[in-house]
Amino acid sequence: MANSEPAAAQSGPAAGPRSRSLRTLRESSTVGLAAVVVLVSAVFAFIAPNFVTASNIANVARASAVFGIAALGITIPMIAGAVDLSFGAIMSLAAIGTAAQLSSGTPMLQAMAVGLAIGLGLGILNGVIATVLHLDSMIVTLGTLSVFGGVAFMITNAQRTYAPGDDFAFLGRGFLIGVPVPVWIMLAVGGSLALLLRFTTFGQRCFIVGDNSRAASLSGLSIARTRIAALAISGVAAALAGIVITSNDGLIYAGTGERYLLQGLAAVVIGGTALRGGTGTVVGTLLGIFLLGIVDNGLNLVGVPGVWQDVLRGLILIGALVIDRLRDSRL
C-alpha cells in the first residue's frame, strides 16, 4: 500500500532484490512445498515404520486421489479468480447420475458420460449465473452448493444409490502396474490440466483474468468466457472424482461430496494458488494433495485417533494460510 505512493523515476537497470523475477519466486515456493512433503514423509517414516511399505503408500495415494481429482479441477477457476465451493455437491450429483444409470443397466461408459455431462452442465451453470448477475463466484457457488446438494438429497430421498458392476469397480479399487487406478486417473487429470495451463492461450488467459479482471476486461479479454470455461473444467473434474468415489465404495450418498469441501480447498491453497487468483500451479496442488494425504495417513499410523485428525486438519490449513500471507507480504 505504502509503496504505491511514490512515483519517482527509477533509472538504469534496477539491481538488487527488487528486480528478482516472478518465476524464481514461484518456483522457490513450489520447491519449498516439495521439501516440506519430503520432510514430513521422513518424519513419519522414522516414527512409524509401516509408513514406507508399498501397501501403505498405495493406500495414501488412493485416499488422496479421490478428492485430489476434484482439487486439481478447482485449481483452474481459482487461478482465473473464480472460487468454486460447489464442487462437492457436483461430485455427489454427478455420481448419483452415473450410479442410477448403472443400476438401470446402462453400459458403463455411457453411464459415466452422463455423470460427466452433469458436471459439465453444472459447472457452466455456475459460470453463467456469476456472469449474468455480476456476482463473485464464491457467492454463486455458495448458493449452488445448497441448490445442488438439495437436489442430490431430494432425488435420492437421502438414500444410498448403489453402483453395480465389476468393471466399474475397477476404476476405484483396481491396480495398474501396481499402482491404484484412481492415482493414474488423478495423474492423468493433473497432467492434462498442467498442459492446458502451460501450453494453451486459454491457460494464459486464466492467469490474466485472475490477476486483475477489470484490467483484463479493458484489455479486450472476455472474463465471462474464460471463467465459464474454467468452472466447466472444475465441474467435469468434480464429476470424475464423484464417479471414482462411487466406484471405490460401490455406492454413493448425497452428502458424500460435500465432505471433501475443506480438503479440496486446502490442497489448492497449500499448493500455492492464491484465493484472489492470478497465481497457482497444478504441481503445487498435487503436492498439497500429497501433503494432506501423508499427514492423514501418518497420524493414523502413529495412532492419533480419527477425531483428532479433524482438529489438526483445520489447524494445518489455517497455518498454511497464515504462512501464505506472510510469504505474500514479503513479495
Binding site: A7, Q10, G12, P13, A14, R18, S19, S21, R23, L331
Partner: peptide, 14 residues
C-alpha cells in the same frame, strides 16, 4: 526500465 521481461511489474516506477 528495468529492461527485464521477467521483473515484477510492481518493482517499476509509476
Amino acid at each position: 526500465r528495468p529492461p527485464a521481461t521477467e521483473a515484477l511489474i510492481s518493482s517499476l516506477s509509476g
